[in-house]
Every structure is written in C-alpha cells, then in structure tokens.
Nucleic acid binder design. Structure first.
Lengths: 252, 252
DNA sequence: CCCATTGACTTGTTTAAACAAGTTAGGTAT
DNA sequence: ATACCTAACTTGTTTAAACAAGTCAATGGG
C-alpha cells in the first residue's frame, strides 16, 4: 500500500486542469474512467476529486459529473489563501523580498495581551517585530508572539529568515491548523513609522492563531499590510452537513 | 441506508464541543469509541471528524488522537467565513438589518466589465445596486451582477429581500462554489454618497464569483464594507496533498 | 539506572462491494 | 406529437476489512 496515491492523482488532475487539457465549463472524465486510468479504487479517485472541489478547481453534481470551473489568475497578485510563509509567497510571485527584525524580546502575557491573542495569561512569549520589504519598499509590519516553551533555541538570526521553515525543518513540528481573521484598521503612528503608506490611512490586518500538532496554540501573529498589495483569496463550498437547521457559530 | 449519517455525527460532535462537553486542549473519544456510540462504520466517523477539522474545531494526529481546539468567539462580531447572505448573517448576530435597492438595470458586459467580473464579454446581465443598513446606519454597498439567462423572473421586489433565498427556494438552484477575493480600496465618491464612512477613507472590498450547479458562473458580487464592521474569519489546514514539491497556483 | 523492545493502542490509506439517488437519452404507449 | 417509462449512465453514502504508521507505556535485559 503506497503512501498517498490520492495525492498523486490530485496533483496530476490539477496539473492537467491548469494546463488547459480539460475544457473549462465541461465535464472531466467520469470516476469510472479515472479508476481505469490511475488503476485504483473508486474511493481513492473520489478523495482526489474532493481536494479539487475544496480548492475551487472543479464542481460535482450527482447524476451529472465533475465540471471544470478553473479560471487562471494573474500570477502577479499577492495571494494569501493558504498557509504560506512570506518567503514562500514572494518566491511564488517572483517579487524580491527581504525581512528585517526590528524588535526581539521576551515578555509575559498580561490580561490585555491574553485577551487579544488567545494565549493564557501568564504565558511566557517571544515578541518579534518584523518588517517585510517587497521590491525594496516596506509593506508589511509583522507582530509575532511565540510561546517560549514551544520554541527551543529561537534566536533573532533564525527569525530573520523564515520562522516557519525553522519550525518545520529544524523542530520537525508540523503546523496543522491556523485560524485567521481579516479586518481593516486605521494606521497607527507605529505603522507610519515602519511602512510607506502613501495616501492610505488604513491597513489590512490579518491576525492568525497557529496550532502545533499537540493542539497547543504556539503562535499568534498580526500582519499589518499596505492596502495596495493586500489580496486574500478564498474558496467557499456549501457542504451538505452545513445545510442543517442549526445556524453556525464558528470557532476561533 | 439513511441519508447523511455523517452529517448527524458531525452536528452532534460540534454541538458537544460548543457546549463544552469535551475539555479544550484534550482528546476527544477515539474513533473506535465513537463507532460504538453512534453505531456506524469507521469511515462514517472519520468523515464527520474531517468536517470538524476543516472547520477548525479539532485537530488530529496519527497515533495520538483527535484534539479539541475550539475557542468560542464573541457572537457580536460580523463574520463572513462561509457562504452566507446578508440576511442570514445579521439574523445570526442579532443585529437589525435592512436592504434597499438603489439601482436595478439590465446591461451587457463590455470588455472592461468582462475582465473585472469574469463573465464572457457580451453576456446579458442584471445589475443590482443595494445598500445594507445595520442598526439603521448604511454600512455595505453591494454591486450585484446576475446572468440574465440564469434568473427567470427576477424583479426589484424580490431582490430587495434575500436574493440567495430566492435562488435556492424558488428556483431549486443549489449554490455550490464561491470564489472570493478580499482587498482594501480607497473610498470613491459613490461610496461616500451611499455609506457613512466617518473618518475612514478606505473600504474592505469582497469580490465573489458564484457558480451554480451547472458549473456556470451566474453571479458576480462586489461588496464594499465600512471598515469598522468588516470581519472575515477563515480556517486553514495544511493537507498532505499540498505538501508536494510543486508550488501552488490558486485558481479563480 | 538506562536503554531497547515489545505490544497495545491511536489515526492514515487503500480496496471492494453494495445500494441510494440524480440525470439523460431513447423507446413505448397513448 | 406528446407523455411516460425504462435503462444506462452519473455521483453520493455506507459498510467491512486489511495493512501502514505514529505514540506511548510497560517490560524486559544490560
């Protein structure tokens, strides 16, 4: 039993869709056809297709088929629809990026900080302030709070690179879930000190709580973006289990 | 074979988590336990759990268990994390809301509009402009474009209510996928004409393309929000199939 | 005391099969 | 011609079983 046959099928189909091998607005080959082509069971094909539905590549309809709804996007846009580090995103979009650490201290979460971040009061934290430059212009001000007891040996040197890569590669800690909130806020003095806001007086603010594989929230980040480059993409699917009578009261 | 046993299990577990019946940060009962409790197969339990992972209620780890990572949220916040109509959202948050249609015309998509919306050039469209009031104050300016050939009998009267409800209930057209983009834009004269922006000079803009069950994009909407009430929530999970070498190039 | 191994758990992946239910085209009876 | 029905597709749901792989505590022997 090889590992992740459904992942291979997912990537194969995604590649074909992006390459335009299936006409947009038309049906993909049926599940039975794909079973024959990939030599696997129906469940495995269906799992790959479910991933394509989740990511907005296709849509399914009972009794009909799997429809290609892919529309290519300008690669220059600065997308944030998935968990990506700043370095990953800028590499993908081909923009030159760099990161400066402007503050690196230890602190303990007080009542106010605990309420804002979701850490329990009294938690010892690294507080890291970083400025991201895009093509030489300061565009993102990042406030990172890391649980001290989850980050053995974090130094400013490491933080200057990609803290996500540090976590995943060095610690073998796989980042699993990230709860994010996007708001728009007025620029503060601090924002103006570090970013070139031009004529804007607001910022796009993305706050996120990240959990490690132990189920411990180990990071709270607030990213304050220059509005002109901020672009968040998302894909929403109404799943049957949401269709119930009960209204939703989302977590976070 | 009853319909959607996994949906029942999903809702049962979600309800228990929200009610605090499982300690936060602790493990839920194991799959085997849940199989016994709900009297179903392992796959069905796993499907319910997968929904809870997607929605940020729990996290799983191989060899360990299913961990509760639920954190309740203030119910007053104006959340947009799933496909919801304005009416649904305001009812859920308990705010009084009303909608005014300020423009309702037919138009044909020109080159520029086609590029912006994603409709093919030449498509006949309803153009609907609506203002949403929240507790009596105009807060959202909505530009809706509907494909004329997908909307038999739409009138201003109906549009004044919930166009989503109209679509789902009257036409039996189940809305499936919605591709959304969030940006921040400077307020235009038109924005200031309809909304009370106060000291803000920016808006939160959410553009969305909605597909019907035929795989046809039948709606393009741009919602321009007063920044103070805009709040978008999201949950991101790094799935194994994304972990590949190939970078992502999101659709839409 | 320390370290390796084992065994009993846990979730992750895949297969095979059966039935339910929606869609569509073609054939039949009116 | 029209209306209905059927048959052959399609995807949706559920079950059962097997094996892979990660975790953790108990049990050893050194």
């Amino acid at each position: 039993m090889p590992r992740q046959k459904y992942g291979e099928i997912y990537r194969a189909l995604k590649g074909r869709i992006e390459a335009g091998e299936y006409p947009v607005g038309q049906l993909l080959p049926s599940e039975n056809t794909l079973i024959g082509e990939f030599g696997c069971s129906r469940n495995t094909v269906r799992r790959a297709l479910a991933g394509l539905v989740r990511d907005g590549y296709v849509q399914t309809r009972q009794g009909w088929g799997v429809c290609n709804i892919f529309q290519p996007i300008e690669p220059s846009s600065y997308t944030m629809g998935t968990i990506e580090s700043f370095a990953e995103t800028s590499r993908r979009t081909g923009q030159h990026s760099s990161t400066r650490v402007v503050l690196f201290t230890l602190c303990t979460a007080g009542e106010e900080l605990a309420r804002r971040t979701g850490f329990p009061a009294g938690t010892e934290l690294f507080y890291l302030q970083r400025v991201h430059d895009l093509d030489g212009v300061p565009r993102i001000l990042n406030h990172n709070y890391f649980r001290w007891d989850c980050m053995p040996g974090l130094t400013a040197q490491i933080a200057a690179g990609s803290s996500y890569r540090y976590l995943e590669e060095k610690l073998g800690m796989s980042i699993v879930t990230s709860k994010r909130t996007i708001t728009v806020e007025r620029a503060t003095e601090e924002d103006r000190q570090w970013l070139e806001l031009g004529e804007y007086d607001c910022l796009a603010v993305m706050s996120s709580q990240t959990y490690n594989s132990d189920g411990v929230m180990f990071e709270y980040t607030q990213s304050r973006h220059y509005p002109g480059i901020f672009r968040f993409q998302d894909n929403a699917v109404r799943t049957p289990e949401h269709h119930s009578i009960a209204e939703k009261r989302g977590p976070q």
